[in-house]
Design a binder for these strands. Structure first.
Length: 818
RNA sequence: GCUCCUGUGGCGGAAUUGGAAUACGCGCGGCGCUUAGAACGCCGUCCCGCAAGGGUUAGAGGUUCGAGUCCUCUCAGGAGCACCA
């Protein structure tokens, strides 16, 4: 079999006939939008791409054969850091690099034989695309969802840009793994926190892997509690000037039930209170020294659990616990985070591990208020914090309540006295979208001395990314675009005076947050996509991609959809109804593939040696799709042999002069129909490996038949066609069919033929298999008992033991307990 | 530290709801074809035992007539979270 010739031939014909062009509507067929996460044009397609795209294409093809009008688009996530970093490394302009790679990767993608509708290809770095990315930014801005602020941000010193929280992994840059540092810099953010509640709640209705949902839930991090006002007590050093300032400090807690055990407060070093009470804090200078130190630390240093907590008392001021009116001291400590809750906590050392540790170190009072072994009257001496629920003691009128009740009653008490209220906090922080880099969509904002921050009018979009020579990132925290006078200097759209453009570009994740919408109408130059077309396809019915995007792309895309839904551009709230992740392919050594380790498997080489069909099919056959696994260099031979045998057998059938119609083989017919059923169900459930093994079992049987109905053989070619589209098409033509096999419907199985009339009854004695016998389906227990007890083998096993019990499982087994 | 997932032959892996463990493929061994090899075809391939039979799903216990599957503990590997009050 000359697979190279076959692949070339069909690539040409498929393109010519446009069999993969997708219409927005086909009569009698439901639309099905099947999407794979589009690739970065980072260089070459690697085996991981193949593992992502090839089995996904099997699913696409199966859906299409099953009667759906399937949209299966592809494109390139072309803007962004990785592509730009690679370009710089090779000394090539990012634009040239990116488009050169897109060209090469397109050829590689075409070789896979996927049913992509190439007429819908999108490239996020194209002017026609990023015009709409900028338009999206403007909508966010106009609706108060994009804002600029100056605050410490995650700065990657190697990539010379700020990063979103989601892009910092263990204190390192997600891409280059450099240690991220804190840097004060003006930056643009999207108010994703406004959507925290909805992003959390709507996860419930999605057909997504539970793990992914859990990860998003944890990232959003909802916690319910109360915010309480602690009054600041007048101190000896009070003077008239600061009387109005900071009369109280707000804390957030989820453990209101422990408040009688609160023996001090802790505020974060960033807390404004320190400045507000400057004149009253006796050791202000010392405090400021501590604050400066804390601010210098990176998040990673600050959150290092292994390190001892540090803190410093704000001398001269004290707070009052509203529940028992006790005066307590106030500390500043860097284990309290400035950006979460109120940036201040009530410390309950007896019932919180962190407070316990801190209290032991600074010798602060510990007061037990929760007893674990309810209703035990005496609480044990604590050796560590007791953080569980229990019944309350030392808690005034709330004594004797259990934690859950107490939280409820105490919250009411607070609200009645107007010194606190229920509050929900989220860990999620706003999405930092500006990047001080060249290769991205420019943020469409203009700064005018007179008019202030002015969004670029929509009619002036796109703000074109200039083709500058100096695109290298800079140290000073500014985009390289800042050096381009031509780009920067602009007239204010409002007053016409001299103004300056924003020079930061957008995070690549902004581009990929809406691309799935654009595929439905990729050429539209009036809107990002036509509403009718979006309605025809969206939301995405099945989305496939790597699990590494669980809290990045997938969260951002959901956020975009919700915003556009609120702005009435979309009629749905979730972009991806169903989601599946492919696993990761490791090198033969069990290590992650990398150039330095020299364990990279080159898909082009494999295609050259074994053919695209074999590569596709082997990837499907390796194991469960979401599991991935190590690459076994010889495993693909099995698939290659299988395909060769299919080819040879077809030739034999075609050349065989004898009439092949006459065969009657009910056993084989049954197996054929069982296989049609199983293959379809397995593909539907992403169990490609077992689908293929059932095809192999069927073929092994068929091959043994000297005479075979050609119509039955055609069915097996159809079953094969999603896996091996080239070979199937070639054989289909050889079997004298004019239309493409890929436009054929999936074979239907005959339910009557599948049914077994007989089955092998397993005979167990004390749970051990001792014998088996062929009996008719649905045999009754009595009949079965009679039958097996008369068998010599069983008789001898039972001998003279008495039968205690007989367990009968219909159509499976019978177990005699003696 | 916490949470979740995974552990089945020499290897990748099968095994509806608890009901024949090791399907399918790789590899290996033997034979055939061949001057020889490659390719291909056929047969064999969990362990002990001549056999009857017995044992085996990381390890130890438990529930059950019956456990790879459910429960408890231990070990190993992986993923995620990690001062969020």
């Amino acid at each position: 079999m000359n697979f190279k010739k076959i692949e070339k031939k069909w690539q040409r014909i498929w393109k010519q006939k446009g069999i993969y062009k997708t219409k927005d509507k086909v009569r009698g067929k439901n639309n099905f939008y099947h999407l794979v996460m589009f690739p970065y044009p980072s260089g070459n397609l690697h085996i991981g791409h193949w593992y992502n795209f090839a089995p996904a294409d099997v699913f696409s093809r199966f859906k299409r054969m099953s009667g759906f009008n399937v949209l299966s688009p592809i494109g390139f996530d072309a803007f962004g850091l990785p592509a730009e970093n690679a370009a710089i490394k090779h000394g090539i302009h990012p634009k040239d690099w990116t488009y050169k790679n897109i060209k090469a990767m397109t050829v590689q993608l075409e070789s896979m034989g996927n049913m992509y509708d190439w007429s819908r290809k999108i490239i996020t770095a194209d002017l026609e695309y990023y015009k709409w990315t900028q338009w999206m930014f403007l909508q966010f801005y106009k609706n108060g969802l994009a804002y600029k602020k100056n605050a410490p941000a995650n700065w990657c010193p190697k990539c010379h840009t700020v990063l979103a929280n989601e892009q910092v992994v263990n204190g390192q840059c997600e891409r280059c793994e450099a240690q991220v540092v804190k840097r004060e810099i003006e930056q643009w953010l999207f108010k994703i926190t406004d959507y925290a509640g909805k992003l959390l709640k709507d996860l419930d209705g999605l057909d997504w892997p539970e793990k992914t949902k859990t990860m998003q839930k944890n990232w959003i991090g909802k916690s319910e509690g109360v915010e309480i006002k602690f009054k600041i007590q007048n101190s000896s050093r009070q003077n008239k000037f600061d009387a109005d300032l900071a009369e109280s400090v707000n804390v957030f807690t989820t453990r209101l039930d422990t408040i009688f055990g609160c023996t001090y407060l802790v505020i974060s070093p960033e807390n404004q209170m320190i400045e507000n009470l400057k004149l009253r804090i006796e050791n202000y200078d010392e405090i400021i020294k501590y604050v400066k130190q804390a601010k210098k630390k990176s998040d990673l240093q600050r959150t290092d659990l292994a390190k001892e907590k540090t803190g410093i008392e704000l001398k001269g001021i004290r707070a009052v616990n509203p529940f028992n009116n006790e005066e307590i001291s106030i500390y500043a400590a860097d284990y309290v985070l400035g950006h979460y809750g109120t940036g201040a906590v009530m410390a309950v050392p007896a019932h919180d591990e962190r407070d316990w540790e801190f209290a032991k170190k600074y010798n602060l009072p510990v007061k037990i208020t929760i007893c674990p072994n309810y209703p035990a009257p005496v609480c044990p001496v604590l050796e560590e914090a007791y953080t569980g629920n229990g019944h309350l003691i030392n808690s005034g009128e709330f004594n004797g309540l259990i934690s859950q009740e107490a939280r409820e009653k105490m919250a009411k008490w607070l609200e009645e006295k107007k010194i606190g209220s229920r509050k929900i906090n989220y860990k999620l922080r706003d999405w930092l979208v500006s990047r001080q880099r060249y290769w991205g969509a420019p943020i469409p904002i203009i700064y005018c001395d007179k008019c202030g921050v002015i969004p670029v009018p929509e009619k002036n979009l796109p703000v074109k990314l200039p083709n500058v020579k100096n695109y290298l990132p800079t140290e000073e925290g500014k985009s390289p675009l800042a050096h381009s006078e031509k780009f920067v200097n602009v007239k204010c759209p409002k007053c016409g005076a001299k103004a300056k453009r924003e020079t930061d570009t957008m995070d690549t994740f902004v581009c990929s947050s809406w691309y799935y919408l654009r595929y439905t109408d990729p050429k539209n130059n009036k809107k990002f996509a036509d509403a009718k077309k979006m309605k025809a396809w969206l939301p995405v019915d099945m989305y496939i991609g790597g699990a590494e995007h669980s809290v990045l792309h997938l969260l951002y895309a959901r956020f975009f959809t919700k915003v556009l839904n609120d702005l009435k551009y979309l009629n749905f709230k979730e972009p991806f109804s169903a989601l599946r992740h492919q696993g990761i392919i490791l090198g033969p050594d069990g290590q992650k593939m990398s150039k330095s380790k020299g364990n990279i498997v080159d898909p082009d080489e494999l295609v050259k040696n074994f053919g695209a069909d074999a590569v596709r099919m082997h990837l499907c056959f390796m194991g469960p799709y979401d599991q991935g696994g190590l690459w076994n260099p010889t495993g693909i031979l099995g698939i290659k042999r299988f395909l060769d045998r299919i080819f040879a057998f077809t030739q034999k059938l075609i050349n065989d002069q004898r009439p092949t119609i006459s065969d009657k083989n009910p056993k084989l017919e049954k197996l054929l129909h069982q296989t049609i059923k199983k293959t379809g169900e397995d593909i539907e459930n992403f169990r490609f490996n077992t689908a293929i093994s059932s095809l192999m079992i069927l073929f092994n049987e068929m091959e043994k038949q000297p005479l075979l109905k050609i119509e039955n053989w055609k069915l097996i070619i159809k079953l094969l066609s999603p896996f091996a589209p080239y070979l199937a098409e070639e054989l289909w033509q050889q079997l004298k069919n004019k239309k493409s096999i890929h436009l054929e419907p999936w074979p239907k199985y005959n339910p009557k033929l599948i049914k077994e009339e007989e089955f092998e009854l397993i005979i167990q004695i004390n749970g051990k298999v001792r014998d088996k016998v062929l009996v008719s389906q649905n045999i009754a227990q009595k009949e079965a008992e009679k039958l097996i007890l008369s068998r010599e083998k069983i008789k001898s096993f039972i001998a003279n033991q008495s039968i205690k019990k007989i367990i009968f499982v219909p159509n499976k087994l019978i177990n005699i307990v003696v």
